[in-house]
Amino acid sequence: MLNLFETMNISASGMTAQRARLDVIASNIANAETTRGHDNEPYRRKTVLFSEIIQNELLAPESAQSGMNLGGVRIVRIEEDQRPFRLVFDPSHPDADDTGYVQMPNVNVLKEMIDLINAQRSYEANASVVSATKAFATAALQIRGGG
């Protein structure tokens, strides 16, 4: 039974991670045209870095029996995309340089939309696992025999 609660924690960590990713994607899309971000440069696209949680290496056969050392996923950090900014020719823009070019954020809205779909699918998958875990618990609780 405890096993099942741990499974729920794993799925919850997955949902938390995907939700955080969704926040970052929202920030990227919202700032796709922001020319004034940190340090007087345009907004830089942000990405999340995921990493697996393992309490200790689980491949030792004696510990595999319990399956107790899986921990799900966590966000290591939010990184800034170091690729160059987009240059757009727009002399009327207040942030245009002497040649008339404006540095725009390195956000590709199309890519963000694809990431958005990915994040959404992953979130749904984790939510389905939670439902299945509940089905496991229900099945176990119904064992009473005799009736």
Binding site: N3, L4, E6, T7, I10, S11, S13, G14, A17, Q18, R21, L49, F50, S51, E52, A64, Q65, S66, G67, L70, G72, V73, N118, A119, S122, A125, N126, V129, A132, T133, F136
Partner: peptide, 18 residues
């Protein structure tokens, strides 16, 4: 079966982990 379920949960939670 329940260990397998936990393992599947771990796999799905990490489906986007490099």
């Amino acid at each position: 079966s329940s260990v397998r379920h936990q393992v599947i949960a771990q796999n799905i939670a990490n489906s986007e982990t490099p």
